[in-house]
Nucleic acid binder design. Sequence first.
DNA 1: CCTACCGATCGGTAGG
DNA 2: CCTACCGATCGGTAGG
Lengths: 195, 195
Amino acid sequence: MEVLERSTRKQQIEEQATALFKTKGYTASSMRDLAQILGIEAASLYSHIKSKEEILQNICFKMADTFFAAIEHVDETSPEKQLEAAIKAHFQVISKNIDASAVFFNEWRHLSEPHLTEFLAMRTRYEQYFVEIINQGIMKGLFRVIDEKFAMMTILSSINWTYQWYRPTGKMSMDEIGDHLSELLINGLIKTRNK
Amino acid sequence: MEVLERSTRKQQIEEQATALFKTKGYTASSMRDLAQILGIEAASLYSHIKSKEEILQNICFKMADTFFAAIEHVDETSPEKQLEAAIKAHFQVISKNIDASAVFFNEWRHLSEPHLTEFLAMRTRYEQYFVEIINQGIMKGLFRVIDEKFAMMTILSSINWTYQWYRPTGKMSMDEIGDHLSELLINGLIKTRNK
DNA sequence: CCTACCGATCGGTAGG
DNA sequence: CCTACCGATCGGTAGG
């Protein structure tokens, strides 16, 4: 019973902290700000969490796990289909976790060692997954010959930026955006018969 | 003579502050950090600047001016050529001002009012320039029919992200990246004869 | 450009 | 979860 209550309270803290960090940034957010949102004193937060940075670590590494879990289920035959599925999977994680994505993309640099190094290693591994798909597409003559890291950066940055403007209530639905993103980006990459 | 010295010192402060803000973020950077880099006491900074935020304002609004100046010279006939020139101009500003671009993209939200509102208005106006080119391309039947704001966001985000990975010493030159960026993005947008 | 210093606020702890 | 409090650090000023 007590464990359950604590667990729930900890989740509440992390949830509110995520929204706060997104709005004000991690460094500019104080534990007193966070406590006030939850209607408690700042000192009381430390019954549930170890430190301010622990919250940031949880947000960043949970998001990293979610991103990896999403592309784990991608299982297509052609590089083109595989890239399409990966782009959509990546976007869906962002669209379903807008606040956490904002913190993930902007505040990770405030992680202390050794978490910072671990975080960057995970990011590189994730990026490598996209690089390999692009590489296969080039080798099979489907994609234009292009620096694969450059292509990966261009693709991921477009998707990553969506947290800045995507609104569930906007005129484009989640699926529509996923479709258009993959279409525009893969269309840019693909070899046309006329070129 | 005195005015000249002060002006130079102020430039030095802003230059070092830009690098510091990029690395640590605006809020996490202290005036004592900045003073130490310059080899003076924190209090001495205030002979040259009014406040910490004044530095941020100067970085952000100077960059905004530079971006506008770059697209002002774009003067092409077709939407395709115009978009290509605008993409290249935008990237060149970033590549030539990597540190200031990082601050511009990440730290603007720490501007206080009324500067924040003014900044966002400028950004919207700049984005609108790209939206209009895309709109013309769609109306002339050159570009695929797509939400023009979505296309603008996708294009600009790819270019904006370059400050994260572009290195003047990297294997792709500045011009090569500009070429490939515009090619990949416009190729994604353009109507192919086979579709 | 420096010394000396201000009030405010920070993350976090002790003890209940 | 609270009261009471800690040492550290913050942006900035006064006066030279």
